[in-house]
Design a protein around this nucleic acid. Structure first.
Length: 475
RNA sequence: GGGUCUGUGGGGUAGCUUGGUCCAUCCUUCGGGGUUCGGGACUCCGAGACGCCAGUUCAAAUCUGGCCAGACCCA
């Protein structure tokens, strides 16, 4: 079995090989940026979806689904939005043998599909807030190099769209989304920083955009989600109005919250090691794989014990697989380690006889569990596994930021950089050029490294309105 | 968006300049058999490819064009 490329030396090469080896996706489909979801990968994705659904529904959001095709006439109503997306929209221009009178856009995102209908749904302040989400595929004709999960042209997209009575209610919805994402990231053991994007990089049409960025090594980050405040930018062109209690007609203030399979990519990139993927229990297709060790003569008793353990764990809601393939145990260990399974239980003649199992978690920690307390011990091991993953990722997270005080320092940077920025766009672009990446924006929360007040702008030296900002390269 | 390059079994390669000797080769993968089974087993038998579509030619993996996919560089 070929070893993976070194993760610290060549992160992207490691990532591509690790995703491939874990069989999370098959990238041989002959359309650029569109990959096949394998059974294993789809299972992980559905578990990820379940985490999103659980946390967003806890905040009162309900699932809807809108069509994938949007008439050009609706698509073009908000000018900033169109400018932002027109270069990457796939158009459907023919139906059967004839050209369509009105071309149909294959949604790159769903504002323009949803908002004409929101205008029908929202009549009164009693209809508000309107909080709905959908998990659908969206399409963007990205011209850059595509990468499984991180940059694809068919995106598995979670998008919440909301309508609120006014700006402050919308701001409150943004905060609620940030809190929901905090819980999702907790389940994925994923550290991140919430960053307010600069004006030129916000979502097209948004009032402001907040993004969740996770440093993954070197100066590189993965943007794993965004929350946008739209104010009335869309409700005006789409005429989403309501009658307030005082009888006046008002436009709603809107927000959106977007996530995608990038989260899965971020999880692989953050937790994976030299053996391959490492998946937190919340999204692992199998939380536990049982490997029966079928030494000559003891086969039946061993298999019976292994299957018995699996049944009991399944009754407790665990996702369990018994690897009964005719293969040697060592080969099976590597197989499941590459796929990131959190916990392995070995059951051989010894264990079958003593009523135990040998537990080895994906971090290589070994213990013996006894049949009598199987369910609770496995539960405890998985909790500890996630906790350790979280702590390990958090420790690495704090080391992935460093302060830069001059532009030349940004060149060839080995970490994400924290720097003082005056807020001017031209200075922002100078910073982006220097780091050969992006100015992610200004952090919305405390940074993981100690900081005083920001000094003069790293680009122009102005001391008027410097703020701490983050510069990085996209993976 | 512009440019350069690449595409050979499931994965990695040789062959391409100068068309025929080539349906090759190694490590793996897959199917079957046997010996095995507590950290990537061994062995035997077998399967499997020239990105796609045209063109040139007696003859195309090889030359030409278009398309698709991928990599890198520039904007």
């Amino acid at each position: 079995m070929a070893d993976l490329p070194d993760k610290t030396a060549a992160l992207i090469d490691w990532y591509l090989a690790a995703v491939d080896a874990a069989e999370l996706t098959d990238k041989r489909y002959p359309v650029k940026g569109m990959n096949v979801w394998t059974a294993y990968g789809l299972s992980a994705r559905r578990n990820l979806d379940a985490v999103m659904i659980r946390e967003i529904e806890a905040t009162g959001s309900r699932a809807v689904e809108f069509p994938a095709l949007i008439p050009r006439t609706e698509f073009v109503k908000e000018s900033e939005h169109i400018k932002g997306f027109e270069d990457e929209v796939f158009w459907v221009t023919r139906g059967g043998g004839s050209d369509l009178d009105i071309p149909l856009a294959l949604r790159p995102t769903s504002e323009t599909a949803i908002y004409p209908i929101f205008a029908l749904w929202v009549r009164s302040h009693r209809d508000l807030p309107l909080n709905v989400y959908q998990i659908v595929n969206t399409f963007r004709s990205d011209t850059k190099t595509t990468r499984p999960f991180l940059r694809v042209r068919e995106i598995h997209f979670f998008e919440e769209h909301t309508c609120q009575v006014d700006e402050s209610a919308a701001t409150e919805r943004v905060r609620s989304n940030l809190a929901a994402f905090r819980k999702m990231a907790e389940a994925l053991c994923l550290p991140y920083l919430t960053i307010r994007r600069p004006e030129w990089d916000k979502f097209p049409g948004a009032f402001y955009s907040l993004a969740f960025d996770t440093p993954v090594g070197g100066a590189q980050t993965i943007q794993s989600g965004t929350v946008h405040h739209y104010r009335e930018n869309f409700s005006r062109p789409y005429e989403i109005r309501y009658e307030a209690a005082d009888g006046s007609q008002r436009f709603v203030h809107q927000t959106t919250f977007g996530l995608s399979e990038r989260l899965l990519g971020a999880v692989v990139a953050i937790h994976g090691d030299a053996k391959g993927a490492v998946l937190p229990a919340a999204i692992a297709p199998y939380e536990v794989v049982i490997v029966p060790i079928l030494a000559a003569g003891a086969g039946e008793a061993v298999l019976a014990a292994a299957r018995g353990y699996a049944d009991r764990l399944r009754r407790h809601g665990r996702r369990v697989h018994v690897d009964e393939r005719d293969d040697r145990p060592g080969a099976k260990y590597y197989h499941w380690e590459t796929r990131g399974v959190p916990l392995r239980l070995d059951v051989g003649p010894r264990e079958a006889q003593t009523g135990t199992a040998t537990a080895v978690d994906r971090l290589g920690r070994r213990s013996t569990v006894s049949s009598a307390s199987l369910e609770s011990e496995v539960h405890g091991i998985l909790l500890d596994f996630d906790r350790t993953l979280r702590e390990r990722a958090r420790a690495a997270f704090t080391e992935r930021f460093s302060v830069a005080t001059t532009l030349p320092e940004l060149t060839g940077s080995k970490t994400v950089r924290v720097l003082a920025w005056c807020g001017k766009e031209e200075c922002g672009h100078a910073i982006e050029t220097a780091i050969a990446g992006g100015l992610l924006g200004t952090p919305e929360e405390e940074l993981p490294i100690p900081l005083g007040d920001p000094g003069p702008c790293i680009a122009c030296g102005s001391t008027e309105t410097p703020k701490w900002a983050i510069a990085a390269q996209p993976l």
